[in-house]
Nucleic acid binder design. Structure first.
Length: 445
RNA sequence: GUGGCUGUAGCUCAGUUGGCUAGAGCAUCAGAUUGUGGCUAUGAGGGUCGGGGGUUCAAGUCCCCUCAGCCACCCCA
């Protein structure tokens, strides 16, 4: 008799399992995002994980094409796994916009795949939480994008964060004045590293990689020296874009957005005009957003996005401008963990009913049903093990309450509701549809 | 894709210039008069030392390859 050949249980590089203790906060975050998106009228959509390869390739840089998971399906078709949610949105919009009408607001929370080198907080399979408004150039949509980010961050539980706002037209205005517009992609990508490598190295790289003169580099870097109130920065920008109509328009647009955000009641310290953020992606054409945590600036932006014109030009003649942003779910979760914002809970239920008295299973099941009907999560322990073991189980999983009812309790019509955190228990009547238990639990919320 | 660092139990690690059946803490499970968890002692399970090859009388330890993780570049969420 030979031992059966065991297969080593393992996951692919850059792919992960999620245990309950990480999945519970993850789902909570996703639920919060959905709630906020929906509160602004964004509707959910979904698209296939697999697309025809031609849909996905050639949309970003060479780099993104290289990172695309691609293969031939069983029918001999060349297919690829979606790399982000924006390209599928473009295809989706080109295909369905006739039925949807504009403006169209959607959110899309789904998994995407990129075959790049994994690092901390970077994986080959990860989730994006996008929301976008397409079919309008209105500044209202730009304002609303910032408001969604703001509300979302607050709903998640952050008070110390800042949304950094910029406009590509301002950047392009500066480049136009310096006659550098033809190299904007390279220059902006370099500028985007400012927070990481500092102005001196950015200047070096601008001269080396984009062939700029030292004067040109320092002109561009003046953007980074602008600090202060929104009005201060906006007026300081004027000379930097002098003579550029694009730049003028960008400034006008930026001030319109800032004014709108303020009118909606957002504390102005939450929105910072940072005309040095550029975002690496070429397709942004207007407002750009990045969101940083005051307490963890080095983890980078946790919610980013911007305006792009001509989203679906590759697929349709219809003119579809849009704006949107994406919550960096994994980055945010690791940040929250670092800040101690995540409770170590391994159960979604509130109460564990101990299976105490072997004869009383049906009473336990009936009681559980009553509590569930009141919206309380309840687990009935499956085995009539000794109470200590069941309480230990409740403790380790993070149940907030244990409900203890043996023959003694049933005889008196009462049960013990034990608060696992404090260790104290209160007696609750079992009569009247367990009303007493329900108020004791819900009153605690 | 390029470069650097790392890889011993589920987790954090020890393991002397290569030398007998590879250890600890935490975690897990079991039991300590079968009605009360977190603390305390007790016991048990769990490792082909990431995998493969080589050098050697002898490899967790040295060499090569490979896989995986971390860091930087690149890019990005």
């Amino acid at each position: 008799m030979s031992q059966p050949q065991r297969i080593q249980p393992r996951t692919l590089k850059g792919f992960r399992d999620y245990l309950p203790e990480s999945m519970i906060p993850r789902e909570a975050l996703i639920d919060t995002a959905k709630r906020i998106y929906r509160s602004y009228g964004f509707s959910p959509i979904d698209t296939p994980a697999l697309e025809y390869l031609e849909i996905l390739t050639g949309k970003g840089s060479e780099e993104t094409d290289r990172q695309l998971y691609r293969f031939e399906d069983n029918g001999g078709r060349q297919v690829g796994m979606r790399f982000d949610l924006t390209v599928p949105l473009a295809r989706f919009a080109a295909q369905h916009i006739g039925q949807l009408g504009v403006p169209f607001k959607r959110y899309h929370i789904a998994t995407v795949w990129r075959g790049e080198a994994p690092q901390r907080g970077r994986f080959r399979e990860f989730m994006q939480c996008d929301f976008d408004t397409i079919g309008t150039r209105s500044a209202t949509a730009d304002i609303e994008t910032a408001l969604v980010i703001h509300d979302l961050m607050q709903a998640i539980g952050f008070s110390r964060f800042a949304i950094r706002l910029n406009h590509r037209m301002v950047l392009n205005g500066v480049l136009e004045r310096l006659d550098l517009l033809d190299r904007s992609t390279q220059i902006l990508r370099t500028l985007d590293k400012l927070g990481k490598i500092g102005p001196a190295k950015v200047a070096d790289e601008m001269m080396a990689a984009a062939g700029m003169t030292g004067d040109q580099a320092s002109e561009v870097l003046k953007l980074a020296d602008l600090h202060g109130s929104h009005d201060t920065i906006l007026s300081a920008l004027e000379p930097l874009v002098a003579g550029s109509q694009i730049g003028q328009e960008g400034i006008a647009r930026l001030s319109e957005i800032v004014a709108g955000i303020r009118a909606a009641g957002v504390d102005s310290s939450r929105v910072i005009l940072d005309v040095s953020i550029a975002r690496g992606l070429d397709y942004y054409t207007g407002a750009i957003y990045e969101t940083f945590l005051d307490d963890l600036p080095k983890i980078g932006s946790v919610c980013s996005g911007g305006r792009y014109d001509n989203l679906a030009g590759m697929y349709t003649n219809q003119d579809l401008p849009g704006i949107g942003a994406s919550l960096g779910l994994d980055r945010l979760l690791s940040g929250m963990e670092e800040l101690g914002m995540i409770q170590p809970v391994r159960t979604p239920a509130d109460v564990l009913i101990a299976y105490f008295d072997r004869q009383r299973l049906h009473e336990y099941l009936a009681l559980a049903a009553k509590l569930r009907a009141a919206g309380i999560g309840v687990e009935v322990y499956p085995d009539a093990k000794k109470l200590a073991a069941q309480l230990k189980y409740a403790d380790q999983r993070g149940f907030r309450f244990a409900l203890i009812a043996g023959s003694r309790e049933f005889e008196s019509g009462m049960c013990q509701l034990k608060d696992m955190q404090t260790g104290t228990s209160i007696d609750c009547s079992l009569d009247d549809d367990a009303r007493a238990i329900i108020t004791a639990i819900c009153g605690d919320r």
